[in-house]
Design a protein around this nucleic acid. Structure first.
Length: 131
RNA sequence: AAUGCAAGCCGUUCUACCGCUGCGAUUCAUCUCGAAGAGGAAAGUCCGGGCAACAUAUAGCAUCUCGCUUCCUAACGGGAAGAGGUUUAGGAUUGAAAGCCUGAAUUAUGGAAAGUGCCACAGAAAGCGCACCGCCGAUGGCCUUAUGGCACAGGUAAGGUUGAAAACGUGAGGUAAGAGCUCACGAGGUAGCCGGGUAACCGGUCACUUUGUAAACCCCGGGAGUUGAAAGAUCAAAUAGGCUAACGCAUGUAGGGCUGCUCGUCCGAUGUUAGUGGGUAGAUCGUUAGAGAUAAAUGGCGACAUUUAUACUGGAUUAAUGGUAGAAGUCUUGAUUUAUUAGGAUACAGAACCCGGCUUACAGGCUUGCAUUUUUU
RNA sequence: UGCCCGAUAGUAUAAAGGUAGUACAACGGUUUUUGGUACCGUUUGUCUAGGUUCGAAUCCUGGUCGGGCAA
């Protein structure tokens, strides 16, 4: 149900290069989203990578905290907001969530913002598919 | 009892729901179940070691680094116990100081008597005394009958000014005036001898001697081969190309080498099939049971060592160890019914091959020692 | 993760261990009807904490911040 296993994460170096080279992106504060639909069959419709800059947050504790909160928010919402809408067989969406905020927010803020992100993402991808 | 300083130790707990990581059980597989999952600094990367690959004359030079002694340690630039220096408090002594005795803090502390350099400004002078003021002018010179005069040659570091530092200090003798020039007492330094100590060093004696600076170059002694798990080992898809064999093409073709040219001779592409080595993506190992931890006994002033007993899965790799809600604990502020209530705070910080140190950060609490203040006996 | 450099006024950059300069900027004044130009003057600094030294921007040690290299 609300799982978050290794298969749902984006680990391959080649796919990451592809994503950041060719993917389209938009900014929705406090996140910067990059995504790229590719033709591949996979267990899940989306593979995601969560990213917090080391430049902005020097201490590892802060980075871990932000990453954990984003991951938890993503885990709880993805099934309803994302998977049901964009699941097409033979397509895999690569997704990168970069945190660009200035301060460390609490969990409820992340939850709200990530819901907005997902709505917009679904809109963008389905629009591309229509064209 | 309070406050401050130093050292050492600890550094939140429980419940519910939803997850993550590897492990075990079950299963064809999923599901499910079980138990486990971040520190004293995991940090900085400042030292040392293990481990691995490469290199090599197990060398020398260069470069870097360490530097009182003895010990501990796998090793160290770490630690323990001492020695000396510096600063400081008290005590006794004295006309006063220095030195003496006791305590505390601190200390990167080999060599300045191997050589080179440096010491701004000030000052006469900053090191084989180039004499500014001052003192003398015995000796030599000039004047004079002579006493004496001149201050010319020269002698002189006792006194003055400067400075962070001024030629070892005080007293006496000595002298023209002076001078460790000589003597007495005292302060260092170097070498020898005697005694104590494992040693650094301390005490005594005798001879010679007296500026500082080596976190200036340097000299002396010790140490360092280079690179780091992105080291390294194993397995290995697709694609491209390498090699081998067979077939095919071919009168051994196209083309090329030998030659000035021809003949001659040598090599020989392009296709198909099979095999084969290297090797990329990726995967596995390296990778967590150890110079280990806890407890007791013994040895040692101590760091530490030895023996015995006990228990022992954190292991990720775009990187797990969490999220939400509730309750408790601790500290603190305000209110009052003095034990309730309302609010606030709950640190520093996140393993990335592994160990031993060092350094830095840290809410709050505990223990020990020292200092100060107040109260009581 | 491992390794290597650097830090000087607001900015750029000098300074053999001996008074921290120079240029631009800022501020005040003079000149001008006003502004600019020109001239004169002033302010502002050695990243931080210790040590060595008579004396430290410089030498040594710890920390902070910034930058670079290894895929």
């Amino acid at each position: 149900m609300n799982t978050f296993t290794k298969e749902e994460r984006l680990c391959s170096k080649k796919l990451l290069d592809l994503l950041f080279k060719n993917g389209s992106s938009f900014l929705l504060y406090p996140f910067r989203i990059s995504y790229l639909p590719i033709a591949a069959t996979h267990q899940y419709p989306v593979q995601v990578v969560i990213n917090v800059s080391k430049k902005r947050y020097k201490r590892a504790v802060d980075r871990n905290l932000i990453k954990r909160r984003i991951r938890e928010a993503y885990r709880l919402q993805k099934e309803l907001q994302l998977y049901s809408s964009i699941s097409v067989s033979g397509r895999l969406v690569l997704l990168s969530i970069q945190f660009v905020g200035k301060q460390i927010y609490d969990f409820s803020f992340f939850e709200k913002k990530l819901a907005l992100v997902m709505k917009k993402l679904v809109l963008n991808i389905s629009g591309d598919g229509g064209n």
